[in-house]
């Protein structure tokens, strides 16, 4: 299979990050399945297990016309970071960022226990935006969790973020591919809500210009 749509980079390095319980693994799997169906070779590296319990989680996606790459992206080599939690964007950029990396950032914080306890400070959203912009070539900030709650379940922030990723045009992802992928894996009753979430993510990027 030779994909018609060439990648901007080969391999294209995408990181999806968040906090345990935000649906990070599922989001990376959705993107991976969509790209794999388009004929690309996909490698997804992720950590889960203990880190699920309130820790940072991160999926590395390598998307390539052909071949197998390391499930760990080399430092400084991310092309796109999708952050389901804003401070996690900074954690990823520290190791994998570069001046050209693009970032999609959900603005709803998940406070670390140290912040809840009062030992640590969580930064202001204004600072977070400024820093993410400073460390990226382009950045989009989306209220994915707020929208997800409107749709009925905060976990849908991950699907909204996948929709936002599609709308950036960084990868040849489309609503049809998304529908095709979730149609295979998801209970019929959930498909409509996931499509709505995907569309909401697309709309957020479009309206941000």
């Amino acid at each position: 299979m030779n994909p018609a749509n060439p990648l901007q980079h080969n391999p294209y390095n995408l990181i999806i990050t968040g906090v345990g319980g935000q649906g990070n693994v599922l989001a990376s799997r959705m993107v991976g399945d969509m790209m794999s169906q388009l004929g690309y070779d996909v490698i997804i590296g992720e950590t889960f297990g203990a880190s699920q319990r309130g820790g940072s989680v991160m999926s590395h996606l390598r998307i390539t016309a052909k071949g197998v790459y390391s499930p760990q992206i080399p430092f400084g080599s991310a092309h796109m970071v999708v952050a389901l939690e804003p401070s996690e964007a900074l954690r990823v950029l520290k190791d994998y960022g570069n001046p050209h990396v693009r970032v999609i950032c959900n603005t709803r914080p998940v406070q670390p226990v140290g912040v809840i306890r009062g030992d640590l400070d969580y930064p202001d959203m204004a600072d977070l935006r400024r820093w993410v912009r400073e460390l990226s070539g382009a950045a989009w900030f989306i209220q994915a969790t707020d929208m997800a709650m409107k749709l009925g379940n905060p976990i849908l922030a991950n699907v909204i973020s996948v929709g936002a990723l599609a709308a950036t045009g960084a990868l040849p992802l489309s609503r049809d591919h998304f529908e095709n992928v979730i149609g295979r894996k998801m209970a019929a009753g959930k498909i409509e809500m996931n499509l709505q979430a995907f569309d909401a993510g697309v709309a957020m990027i479009r309206s941000a210009g």
């Binding site: 203990a50 319990r53 820790g55 401070s87 520290k94 140290g114 912040v115 400070d121």
Partner: peptide, 10 residues
């Protein structure tokens, strides 16, 4: 900007 995330019970 990224306070550490100590592991915790859910």
């Amino acid at each position: 900007g990224a306070p550490p995330r100590e592991l915790t019970f859910c």
